[in-house]
């Protein structure tokens, strides 16, 4: 599958190194139907390709939304794109968050840093089908107040009476300017108002953060088979052929990025894997 051309409709800076791009098909084809948790390969001609989660509303697939953090050559170039410029898109690829399996129970979403991006479509889906779920809880941790993503969404979700939203930062340099929590995201788990035996947890963030989060959730009685993680690896082909993203017996691009915890737990304990 080759990339198709998409045009940047809007580029919004989220914080110092992260940009959210809204793109639309340059040739007018579409829509791009995707499931929450899937990703696209974004291709910049002459620069390279990067796997980026889709973070828009799955019920509005006419355009695509991607939040990109500038951490390397390709992502730096993508973050410099402006309205009207073109990039290539391949996808969508990968597995999805289990929004159907979670129906009828509570849903606990734990996001760290840019890990909120692949979970945002889950929030959109849950809130569009709010009556099908029990309690919905979002626990979100970032490095500093300035690193928090999607300020408008967070405010809107907080303004509802049917979603519990808790945010925390690892460090607040200006104590008088930040009135929220300070501490790592795992410290919020005790505040989550959900029933451990009836809860599906979806986690995305740095690997260490996910490890600590899983340990805390297990300690509080969540079943391993109801905990899901989105793994990040170096993805190249996105179709399970090149082997760059091999993780134990799986390929993150094809079998993931969303995995049920009990199915990958042994590989998470293998160092340097």
């Amino acid at each position: 599958m080759g990339p198709s051309p998409w045009t940047v409709r809007r580029a919004a800076r989220e914080n110092r190194d992260t940009v959210t791009l809204e793109v639309e098909p340059a040739d007018g084809v579409g829509p791009c139907v995707f499931a929450p948790g899937q990703f696209n390969m974004l291709y910049l001609f002459g620069v390279g390709e990067a796997a980026i989660s889709i973070c828009g509303d799955p019920a509005a697939p006419r355009g695509l939304v991607h939040t990109v953090r500038a951490v390397g050559r390709v992502t730096n170039a993508i973050c410099r794109l402006r309205r009207g410029q073109t990039l290539g898109v391949r996808g969508p690829f990968g597995s999805a968050w289990p929004v159907r399996d979670a129906v009828g129970g509570d849903v606990l979403i734990v996001a760290g840093g840019i890990g909120l991006a692949p979970l945002r479509p889950v929030l959109y889906h849950l809130l569009a089908h709010r009556g099908e779920y029990g309690r919905v809880v979002l626990l979100y941790g970032a490095r500093t107040p300035g690193d928090l993503l999607y300020g408008r969404d967070l405010a809107r979700w907080r303004g509802r009476f049917d979603v519990q939203v808790e945010a925390t930062v690892d460090a607040a340099a200006e104590p008088d300017a930040w009135h929220g929590q300070v501490g790592v995201v795992t410290t919020l788990i005790a505040r989550a108002e959900c029933e451990p035996g009836e809860t599906t947890a979806m986690i995305c963030g740095p690997a260490v953060m996910m490890r600590f989060t899983v340990a805390e959730l297990e300690r509080r009685g969540l079943a391993r088979e109801r905990i899901y993680l989105s793994m990040e690896r170096n993805m190249r082909c996105a179709i399970g052929l090149c082997g760059h993203c091999q993780f134990g017996p799986t390929f993150v691009c094809k079998d993931g990025p969303v995995f049920r915890y009990d199915r990958i737990a042994p590989w998470l304990r293998v160092r340097e894997l």
């Binding site: 951490v71 760290g112 840093g113 840019i114 890990g115 941790g141 970032a142 490095r143 690193d147 690892d170 460090a171 501490g183 790592v184 795992t186 963030g205 740095p206 690997a207 260490v208 953060m209 600590f212 990040e232």
Partner: peptide, 12 residues
Amino acid sequence: RLQLLDVYGTSA
């Protein structure tokens, strides 16, 4: 310990 790792500083 997790806070000291500054996990959001370099990736994800």
